[in-house]
Design a protein around this nucleic acid. Structure first.
Lengths: 194, 194, 194, 194
DNA sequence: AATGAATGAGGATTCATTCAT
DNA sequence: CATGAATGAATCCTCATTCAT
């Protein structure tokens, strides 16, 4: 079983993509770093994009796994929600370039990459859904439409990815996440103080 | 006045970038479409990225202008906020590929692109700040820290750009925006019904 | 009389050629530095090479003039020869263009440029010839063939131009010139001590 | 062993550079003549200049080798010196364009070319030094400073390269070399006949 | 399965020269 | 005379992919 090469390629590619992004990473580099001939890569993958897709896939799986773990460590729905938010950013930080939005340079497989990225999104949504559901059952949350709310929350969080992870913003993200959470729980209308 | 060529180049480039993105648009194409010699482009711009930067710049300016206009059409702070959100997405829809987030590994010149994109963000924040301020003064909103809240809101909205504009998600964005707005105003905690 | 533009072009071109060489100097640069439109240059010169040729011509004239002056200040043939050598290098230091053989990028006018450079050489030879002649008449020098000797000397001196002026050698040229002069006068054979 | 391609590239490049010089030789040409894809050249060299540098290097090595051989064929120091001068020009004649002195304004990469050319110069100096030394020991030459003299001689010889090799002068170089040699040995002062 | 040499289709950029105003 | 916008040929370099060994 000579899966070692395959493993080497994927590991190396992950590192390379993480550091330089999809486009700026070229196969020469991966091959050199993986101590493998360039041709070997083509024994396992149809193309550079094939490699990327596989790396992306693995990454998403891992991230979902780790977020789930973090959430399950908490008991109350509020804390679970908070844990979700924080662990999401913790674990995604390293995957910035891999998830990378670099929509160019993927062309035909763009669709597949989107599908994978959407899997991540849907997994997140489904985690949030169960948190919200539990909150509803326990009377902590009050919502009209759990799924809609969950999706809205997840969409919102992507904004922080964009500016913070991708944009390399120097601001302390936690501030904003905390603020967002506060709004999320209480809203901004003064009437809530009735 | 021979600014016609320059205008032709910028207009064409805008269209091309909007359709194919920065990388897949090549100068040959722009030159051909603008009925101009490739060298002519270099009379006006130092490089391909120079063209992109200019197009990006213009686009951002226009968007900010149009959002501001839309907001000012409303009177109440709540409606202004709603108007902000909706017009933001209306006007950004067309600029998807131009603003495009292709990160391609944090390059030299692309740094300027980030700066321009951040300008857009800051402009948005400043619009939201004035809305929130007005809301506070009128006693409609109740907030601890206006700036922080404004930034948190703007960060959140970026998530919708990511999934909806960039990701080409087929979902009806308005649903989510409305839901987000509802949460924004009232929060999700049941305690608000005290 | 609008010779000002012409003068500006030539002066600027001289500087530019001296600093960057023929090939790396482009007309844009000359035009910009001379505060003149690029097209204007083509009113005075048929081509870039035409400009170069003119610059080269002027330099040669100036140098010959100045060397002649320096030599004529001396009285004895030996001192005249020494003066020739030293003033040649003094005055050529600034005229790097002449040496700038950059044979590539001149193409068709290569021949003309060579002719101009040869003019300088021949002028030098003719100066040395008259020095040697005078030396012979006064019985200070003893030679078989004045012209041949003069040419050999001038050829030799070009070696110092090459390494010192062009090559940017850091060595103190005077050392070598003095040594050369010593050999020139006495030779290296020990038999001279008969 | 697939070094054939490399050899083909270098051989072809040598021919091309020798015929057209560095600038007028383009990679397309080399590739075509070497029956090789353009990209292949980049497998072996970082750039066009990389190719040039290698060719230049080889050429210099060969020249030094051949000059040394010629000199060693002679026995007396006087004849060795004469042999040095003549073989130097013999062997350099073919390398004119390769060594070519197109100065193009002291560029980045060309700095290395200068280094290589200087190596040639230093090798020549060191050959002359050993000839002079031997001459001194045998009482044939009388000198104050061997190194200084050697360098002065080599500098002088460069003048002949300049006018004869590079300048394409039609004159019979041997005449001048012989004359130079005569002066070198005996000087021009009549006092030598004491 | 593994290699790595070879490929060649692109794409960005430079610059001398022309010409209408 | 002066301008400077427009031209487009020429050239270097990158890199995903193929293929003979």
């Amino acid at each position: 079983m000579k899966k070692e090469k395959l493993e080497a390629i994927l590991t190396t590619a992950r590192t390379a993509f993480a550091r330089y992004g999809l486009r700026k990473t070229n196969l020469d580099e991966i091959a050199r770093m993986a101590r493998v001939a360039k041709g070997t890569i083509y024994n396992y993958f149809r193309s550079k994009e094939g490699v990327y897709l596989q790396v992306l896939s693995r990454e998403v799986e891992e991230i979902v796994e780790e977020i789930t773990l973090s959430v399950n460590r908490e008991v109350s729905p509020e804390k679970k929600l908070a844990s979700f938010v924080h662990s999401k950013f913790q674990h995604m930080r390293r995957a910035v370039n891999i998830l990378n939005l670099d929509r160019e340079g993927i062309e035909e497989h763009l669709h597949k990459a989107d599908t994978i990225r959407n899997d991540l999104f849907e997994s997140e949504v489904s985690i949030v859904v169960s948190i919200l559901k539990e909150g509803m059952e326990k009377g902590v949350f009050k919502l009209n439409d759990i799924l809609l709310t969950a999706r809205a929350i997840c969409h919102s969080l992507r904004g922080f990815e964009l500016n913070w992870l991708v944009g390399g913003s120097q601001e302390r993200i936690e501030h904003y996440l905390d603020e967002l959470q506060r709004i999320l729980f209480f809203g901004i209308l003064s009437e809530r103080n009735c």
